[in-house]
Design a protein around this nucleic acid. Structure first.
Length: 244
DNA sequence: AACAGAGTCAACCGCAGCTAA
DNA sequence: GTTAGCTGCGGTTGACTCTGT
């Protein structure tokens, strides 16, 4: 299912990610944010290219992602969005909280392409773009159910990064990601520091997540410019987590 | 049990677009 | 206006799993 790990001529690792690499990347981004994908692997102690790190984070490690089977409503929405947007997978992902462009793309190619072909024999339903939105999704999944109860502000629904939308969804919908991923959530991100950009981005090759967690709980790590797609999410999550 | 072909999906590749110098 | 560096996107690949024979 995944590519066998190997090293290219520059000594950069390719292929499947190990648990250890995941932990390093996750911990680093949650600590410092993705301030520069190109430089990030060097500081995080990873033998990967920045692109690979970004992809891994966006498609797999990022909080709030849903994995697994799609609901009927999600399938229908993807089909409708495909009619409207074509292969704009990232645009589709914005309408499907918790799903990535890559995942939607794969799902399309494996399942929905066939379904779409068969349905083209019927008269297609033409919809205006503004008719298709996340709030039109009716789903039995917790995220989507509650997102109807806590609709996104317009600017959040229509602009900004995909991931911040996911995160805001999570926050709006009251999902306690901190509780779900307690080891991934770190206290005090909401507290500011003066010199985030001048803070040394130390290579955490000997990084111990439990140490980090405990120390961060005590408020030792504080970020003001947490330059991460999910900064709002983390700030909110931290507050929720600390409140529990 | 063994093999072949189909299906799945994480990851890679290359390009376009954006921004800063 | 040009160039370089970086990010994000969409298409594609290929290792692995599943299913049928």
């Amino acid at each position: 299912m995944v590519r066998t790990p190997c090293f290219d001529k520059n000594g950069l690792k390719k292929g499947a990610w190990s648990k250890e690499e995941d932990d390093k990347l996750k911990a680093y981004i949650q600590r410092y944010g993705n301030w520069n994908w190109r430089q990030l692997p060097k500081f995080a102690g990873l033998s990967r290219c920045g692109k690979s790190c970004r992809l891994r984070w966006m498609n797999y490690l990022r909080p709030g992602l849903k994995h697994g089977s799609y609901s009927k409503q999600e399938e229908d929405l993807i089909l409708k969005l495909y009619d409207e947007l074509g292969t704009k997978w990232s645009a589709m992902a914005e309408k499907l909280p918790g799903r990535t462009d890559n995942e939607i793309k794969n799902y399309w190619h494996t399942y929905l392409k066939k379904r779409a072909k068969s349905s083209t024999k019927q008269t297609p339903v033409v919809r205006q773009p503004d008719e298709i939105s996340a709030e039109n999704v009716v789903s039995d999944s917790p995220v989507e159910q509650t997102s109807k109860d806590y609709p996104l502000p317009q600017e959040q629904a229509s602009s900004g990064s995909v991931s911040s939308t996911y995160c805001d969804y999570a926050v709006f919908s009251g999902i306690n990601w901190a509780a779900e991923e307690s080891t991934d959530c770190f206290g005090s991100f909401s507290q500011p520091i003066e010199n985030f950009w001048t803070e040394p981005f130390l290579v955490d090759t000997s990084f111990d997540q439990s140490d980090f967690l405990s120390s961060s709980m005590e408020g030792e790590f504080m970020l003001s410019h947490y330059y991460c797609d999910g900064n709002e999410f983390f700030n909110q999550s931290m507050q929720e987590f600390q409140a529990t």
